[in-house]
Structures are given as structure tokens and as C-alpha cells.
Design a protein around this nucleic acid. Structure first.
Length: 592
DNA sequence: GATTTCACGTA
DNA sequence: CGTACGTGAAATCC
């Protein structure tokens, strides 16, 4: 492969409260805050650097806010999460990770301590105000905040960032083989995802406010004029249920215990009142039917109602929330303010701006395809050649497609009982390598052994792999030996079986999240020249907002991006990934 | 006031 | 057909 451009120069960017600092090859500059965005943009145009940042939040939020496209970064926080697992990734955590210091001892900012407790006593332990490192070698808690003033100090923080980058890249390379490049690419795409999160927060998701008001009104009633009006509307909603229970009109539908008693009064005896338990009673009990309808409406009224609209949809009709590039467990993206769990009935309200459309694209059967990559199962990979993976599996096993699907899902997600039982045995004979990967992940979870996703993310369980960890025959995971000092000390409670299921799920879900982010990062670059932007990421689905005239190009770009991202991520084209991409105006359209 | 439980939305 | 996460209301703990 000789088509790679020369590696981008690494330039550290540190943004302090009063000024910023950039340090790279032949470069040491202190910048006024007001000039950071323009200088970054200019440097991207000239030397195309990869920006080394303590976090995208620290160094790039202002740059992104100014509308600058930051194509390449090395996010020390995201790399730290990848290397060491978990979610905490302050500069102090990153430094501790690089130095093999215990994360338990990382200094915590004073405001993080118990409210009302005077922390000054403890801060004396940090001795001198000039020292960047504490006596125990940790980065001081306020290194990037109060302490980071003056070009001398910022320069030291920039140098430290470059040191951490070298250290992180070094430990990735130390794992050796073709796995190393893969881990480094994971850092690249995770870093890009962190920048994408800033863009998602900046731009928001376009909402048709009037449509949203209509949909909310249909579920929750008209917008209340005052508290008394709100109480009246609420009582009206409640009455639609309570009129089916004469004599018990005082019952509180928002209190599960009272609901259970209420249901008992009409002869429905259930251990709890969750929807799936009540669903069977729906046709025979009008009260249950009314209650379940009430629950849907109540969800909209409380969580996605007028308050939600007023607080999270801006004057520019964009829904905004905080985004994170990786969650605590397996590394999926997360979003707040309903961006990730907007009820389907409200989706018609997500509408492209006039003159724009959405390209909506979602990965098909992504988790079994990821399993084929992670396990290296040649036979299972063969099945991914098909648009519908379950069809060739069914053919190979000589069973119905529906049975094959249930069996594959059962193997991946845990249930080993029921109708899938017989087909599962066939599955293990047909795809022993893939099934073995799942079994070993389960066993790792039971034994509290940490594991790694395909892209190298540590899923910590407390017990790190010992240096003499046996190599995996399939090449998956490449478990590394963690410096013993920084053990994240994660205690995932629950039963053996619960930990086993968690581990089995995490290695698949987490690996799928990496492929998704690699895809998203590629799409982000590909649609920008078309005036397009990613406005929503939903685990296996992308929503791209693009001028109508460029819709076809964007649609093709999204497909091409998947081909390139999956080839690079998986290191092969043997496993095929597929996406369904359609051009729509409202999110509710083209929902398969 | 902070934490836990219940419930349910998305993938 | 499991797992993950975010949200809100009520109960519970301190």
C-alpha cells in the first residue's frame, strides 16, 4: 500500500483560560484566545497537522464553534479511554495512564469534593504553586485551568501532551503486528468522533416546531396556560383511564404500587406493572388498554413535551444536547436531551431545512457481520457476502430463515433456550470459530478477565491480562498487559451469568461502535465538500443534512464511505458490510 | 438533598 | 433476544 500521504505532523494545541499554545516540529507559538480559530484554520491549510489535544472539549470547542473544520486530531482523552477502559479521562488520568501511576491517586479538582467541605487543607499537599507535577508525580488538578496561565506554563502543557501522545502511540505499537496499525486507526476515528460531537452540539438537529407542537398536543393536550390549567389537563388524561375503575378514581397512575392495586381490583394480578406484562390483558381489560395508552401519552407529556421543546429546541429550531464519543461500557456514542431516544411518533417533526434533505443511512445486520470480523470465522464471513446474512446461514443449516435469525441472535445475545436450541447446535458445527469467540468472551466475563474489542478498547473487569496472556488463535483482541499500577478497578456486579452476557455483548457492541465511528468519520469528510453535515448518529444510523441538489452525490458518498471505512477497519473485504441509504425530508420517512 | 426504584424510549 | 444508555416521577435514605 503506497497510496498513503506522508504522516501528518503532530501539533499540540492547549487552550488555557487566557491564551493558547501550539507546539510542533519547528513550532512554538503562544496565541491570544481570539486568534485560535483563525490560526488553526490557517495551519490546517498549510501543513495539515494532526492536532494533539488533551481533549476535544479543551482545545477544539472554540475552534469548532467558529466553524473551522478540524479533519485530523489525536485526542489524548479518547486514546486513554481506549487504552485503559472506562470513562474518566481528565488530563490527570491521561498522564497517570502514560506514567503507570494509580488512577485512584489522581488529584481531583476542589469543586469535585463534598459540597460545604473546605478543601483548602488538602490543597496544601500540592505544595508549590509553580509545580506542574505533585510530589507523587501526578498532574496537578488545575493544570489546564487556574494554573495554565502564561506562555511558559502553556508550553510545558503542550510538551507534556506530545509526550503523552508518543507514550500512547508507543504502547499501541508495542502490541505489535498488524494489530498496531488498527489500534492507531481506532484512535484516529475515536478522535474524529470527539470532534464530530462538538459539531453535533454546535449545529443541532433541525426540527419542524409546528409539527412537533401538533404531535405533542395530540398526546399531551394543548399547551397549558398556567399551573392550574396544567393540572386540569393532567386530570383529564388520568380520567380516560380511571373512568374504567369506578370507585377508585383517586388512584395515582404515576405510582406503580397503586397501579398494581388498581389492576387487582379489576382482576388483573401481576407481579409488577411493566408494559410487556400488561400487554396480554389489553384486549380483555379496557382499563389495561387505557392505561397503556396513557403511559405512551404520559411519556410524551413528561419527557418530550412542551418543556422539552422550550428547553432544548433553540430559536433556530434546532434540537441540541450534549454528545459523548464513547460511553462507559463498550464505547458507543451517547447523546442527551432525547436525541437518542426520541419516540418514533415524534420523528415526523425532525425535518430538513428548506432547500435541504436528509440522507438517512443505517447499517444492516451490523452485529453478526462484526462478529465475523472479530472472530475471523471464514465460513461466517462467507455468509456476509449476502445482503441478507441470514439467508445463506439458513441454507447452510437447512432451516428456515426465521429460525436461523433467532439462532444467530440467541448465540450473540445469550438466550440458549427455547426454539433456537436445536439450531444453535447446528450453528456451532457450521461456524465453530465465531461461536467459540462468543463462548470465550462469556467465560472472560464470568472469570472477571478484562477483554478488548476488535479496535483495541479495553473492557475492564478488574483483573487485567497477565503479561504472559496466551495469544488468541483468531488474532482478535490482542490482549495487552496493562501497567499494573493503573488498574481501573472496575467492579461489575451481578451474577456470573450477568457478567458473561455483558462481556459477550460488549465485545460485539463495542466493536460495532468502532466500525460505526470509522464510517461516520469518513462520511463527515466526504459530505463536507457537498455542503452536507452529519446531524445525528444513532448507533448504526446516520442522518446527513445536505442541500437538495447534492442529495444523490451524498447518498453515494455515504455508501462509498462504508466501503472504505469497513475495508480499513476490518483490514479485509472478506467480510461485507451493507447500508441502506435513502433521501428523505422527514426522519419518519423510509423507515424500514 | 442525594440515591434508588420503577418505567420506558432508542439502538 | 440479550446488552447499553438517558429521562422523569415517586419512594427511600440520610
Amino acid at each position: 500500500m503506497s497510496d498513503h500521504p506522508p504522516p501528518a505532523p503532530l501539533v499540540a494545541l492547549v487552550v488555557g483560560p487566557h491564551e493558547a499554545y501550539a507546539a510542533g516540529p519547528g513550532l512554538r507559538e503562544s496565541w491570544p484566545l481570539a486568534e485560535v480559530a483563525s490560526r488553526v484554520a490557517r495551519m490546517i491549510g498549510s501543513i495539515h497537522p494532526r492536532w494533539v489535544v488533551w481533549s476535544a472539549e479543551n482545545a477544539l470547542r472554540g475552534v469548532v464553534a467558529a466553524g473551522v473544520d478540524v479533519p485530523r486530531s489525536w485526542d489524548l482523552a479518547e486514546a486513554h479511554r481506549l487504552l485503559h477502559g472506562g470513562w474518566r479521562a481528565t488530563p490527570g488520568d491521561v498522564w497517570a495512564g502514560c506514567r503507570g501511576l494509580r488512577v485512584d491517586d489522581v488529584p481531583v479538582p476542589r469543586r469535585g469534593r463534598q459540597a460545604g467541605f473546605d478543601g483548602d487543607l488538602f490543597d496544601l499537599a500540592e505544595r508549590s504553586v509553580d509545580e506542574l507535577l505533585t510530589e507523587s508525580g501526578h498532574l496537578r488538578a488545575d493544570a489546564l485551568e487556574g494554573w495554565a496561565t502564561g506562555s511558559e506554563r502553556l508550553g510545558r502543557l503542550a510538551d507534556l501532551a506530545l509526550t503523552c501522545q508518543r507514550e500512547q502511540e508507543g504502547s499501541l505499537r508495542a502490541r505489535g503486528g498488524d494489530g498496531a496499525e488498527r489500534l492507531i486507526r481506532t484512535v484516529w476515528s475515536e478522535s474524529a468522533a470527539a470532534v464530530l460531537c462538538l459539531e453535533l452540539e454546535r449545529d443541532g438537529l433541525p426540527v419542524d416546531r409546528l409539527a412537533a407542537e401538533d404531535l405533542i398536543s395530540a398526546a399531551a393536550g394543548p399547551r397549558p396556560r398556567d399551573d392550574a390549567d396544567a393540572a386540569r389537563i393532567r386530570a383529564q388524561r388520568d380520567h380516560a383511564v380511571l373512568r374504567h375503575a369506578p370507585g377508585r378514581e383517586r388512584a395515582d397512575l404515576r405510582n406503580p404500587a397503586q397501579v398494581r392495586t388498581l389492576l387487582q381490583s379489576v382482576g388483573v394480578d401481576v407481579p409488577h406493572t411493566r408494559a410487556w406484562v400488561l400487554e396480554p390483558y389489553r384486549p380483555t381489560h379496557a382499563l389495561v388498554d387505557a392505561l397503556l395508552t396513557w403511559r405512551k401519552n404520559e411519556r410524551v407529556a413528561t419527557t418530550y413535551g412542551y418543556r422539552w421543546l422550550d428547553e432544548h429546541v433553540g430559536a433556530d429550531d434546532r434540537l441540541r444536547g450534549r454528545w459523548t464519543a464513547c460511553d462507559g461500557a463498550a464505547g458507543r456514542m451517547t447523546a442527551q436531551n432525547g436525541l437518542h431516544n426520541l419516540p418514533a411518533p415524534l420523528r415526523p417533526a425532525i425535518r430538513a431545512e428548506p432547500g435541504y434533505v436528509f440522507v438517512r443511512a443505517d447499517l444492516g445486520q451490523v452485529e453478526p457481520r462484526v462478529l465475523a470480523v472479530v472472530s475471523g470465522d471464514r465460513a461466517f464471513a462467507e455468509a456476509t457476502r449476502s445482503d441478507d446474512l441470514y439467508a445463506p446461514v439458513a441454507a447452510k443449516l437447512g432451516i428456515e430463515r426465521s429460525v436461523a435469525k433467532v439462532a444467530v441472535l440467541a448465540a450473540m445475545y445469550g438466550q440458549r433456550s427455547g426454539a433456537a436450541g436445536e439450531a444453535l447446535k447446528d450453528l456451532e458445527r457450521a461456524y465453530p470459530v465465531a461461536m467459540d469467540l462468543l463462548d470465550r468472551a462469556y467465560a472472560d466475563g464470568v472469570a472477571r478477565r478484562s477483554l478488548r474489542t476488535y479496535g483495541g478498547r479495553l473492557i475492564p473487569f478488574g483483573i487485567e491480562p497477565v503479561p504472559a496472556d496466551p495469544p488468541r488463535a483468531d488474532g482478535a483482541g490482542v490482549p495487552g498487559s496493562e501497567p499494573s499500577g493503573i488498574r481501573p478497578d472496575v467492579d461489575r456486579g451481578g451474577s456470573d451469568a450477568a457478567r458473561g452476557r455483558f462481556a459477550r455483548n460488549a465485545i460485539i457492541q463495542g466493536s460495532a461502535a468502532e466500525l460505526f465511528k470509522a464510517w461516520a468519520a469518513t462520511v463527515r469528510h466526504a459530505v463536507r465538500p457537498l455542503g452536507g453535515q452529519i446531524v445525528l448518529c444513532l448507533h448504526d444510523e446516520l442522518l446527513v443534512h445536505v442541500p437538495q441538489a447534492r442529495a444523490g452525490e451524498a447518498q453515494r458518498a455515504v455508501q462509498d464511505a462504508l466501503g472504505r471505512a469497513s475495508h480499513t477497519w476490518a483490514g479485509t473485504d472478506v467480510v461485507r458490510f451493507v447500508a441502506d441509504a435513502s433521501v428523505i425530508t422527514r426522519w419518519s420517512e423510509a423507515k424500514d
